[in-house]
Simulated assay, not measured.
Amino acid sequence: MDWGLVEIVSFVATVTNVLLFLSGMQIISKIYTRGSSQGFSVLPFVVCFVSSTLWTKYGLLSEDSIMILVNFIGVVIEGFYTAVFYLNTKQKQKKLQMTIFSLLAFMFAVLIYTKYFVNPDLALNHHGFICAAFNIINYAAPLSSAAVVIRKKSTENLSLLLSVVYFLVSLEWFFYGYLHQDNFIMIPNTLGILFCSFQLSLFVFYPSKRTISDQKPDVVTF
């Protein structure tokens, strides 16, 4: 089998993205072992589940097998994470329930809208626009921690490894979108590259002040 540039980029993006999904196992293992989700947020898992579901639908509309494969894997993994998190939350607070309900309601609203309320010829564009906008919001969300980093002049609460991985994933999907001439994939990942580059620059200007003795494990976020 002869592999061209498209096949190589598709394979690398798929493997990297699946590994990123699996990185959440670190937190889920701790939650399951302790029997409690205290100290962790369900938001990253639910957001990733919703995003994966929407992009799976986009893959179906655009007949893109790679998008379907990668994001369906994300749906299964992130759905599992969310279920484990919820089952190990002893006190089901309204905030937790509202967070999950609101995001799932948004997801189903988008799926119903593009299925029943949009001309089939326009469904791909409408759905792609929503997916891209949702991705941009997700990429921009971690930047809220930048203000804390700049104020404290330390990146001790940021994960360098995850920042690098996010940068690589954004770069890979940008090239994937470029090779397929798909702006809905290319544009959000262009911004993702910029956001991740900014976050990585913080490690240069504000190195961590933690010593080896007081260093805490980095929390995996999505």
Rank of each mutant, 00 (worst) to 15 (best):
Q26V: 07
A147N: 09
V219H: 08
V118T: 12
S159G: 12
F195W: 03
I8S: 02
R151A: 13
Q97E: 05
C131H: 00
W173N: 03
K30V: 14
L158Y: 11
F21Y: 15
G128Y: 06
D218L: 14
I137K: 09
F129Q: 09
T211I: 11
L111F: 06
A109I: 01
T99K: 14
Y58K: 06
T56I: 10
K95F: 02
Q199F: 03
L20A: 12
S10T: 02
T53E: 03
Q26S: 13
V219K: 10
I68F: 10
I73P: 04
L194M: 11
Q38D: 15
L54G: 13
G128W: 00
T211H: 02
Q38T: 10
I73M: 13
H127G: 05
Y139A: 13
M1R: 07
K90T: 02
L20Y: 08
F134I: 07
V76S: 03
S201H: 02
F21H: 07
L60R: 10
G79C: 09
T53Q: 05
K209A: 06
I28R: 00
S213D: 14
Y166R: 12
Y86V: 15
V70M: 08
I66T: 13
T221Q: 11
L22V: 05
Y116S: 07
L122S: 09
T114H: 03
W55L: 07
L161E: 09
V165T: 12
I31Y: 03
T114R: 04
Q97V: 10
E172F: 15
L122M: 10
P120T: 11
S10K: 00
V110K: 04
F101R: 04
D2P: 08
V110P: 03
A133V: 04
N88P: 02
V204Y: 11
K95T: 11
A147I: 13
T56Q: 08
A83T: 13
K95D: 10
Y81P: 01
D121H: 01
F45D: 10
M1H: 03
Y113F: 03
T56F: 15
S102T: 14
L179R: 00
L158T: 01
V169N: 01
G192A: 08
T99L: 10
V18E: 05
L19E: 00
F198G: 12
K92A: 03
L122T: 06
L54N: 05
S29Q: 01
S208H: 06
S10I: 05
G74T: 08
F175G: 04
F117M: 13
E172C: 08
A123V: 09
S65N: 09
N125E: 11
Y206Q: 02
V165E: 09
T53Y: 09
S170M: 04
L87Q: 14
G59C: 10
G35K: 11
W3H: 04
T114N: 04
I212F: 09
V110D: 00
L111P: 00
F205M: 05
V50P: 02
K30R: 15
F85E: 07
V76N: 06
S145E: 13
V75H: 13
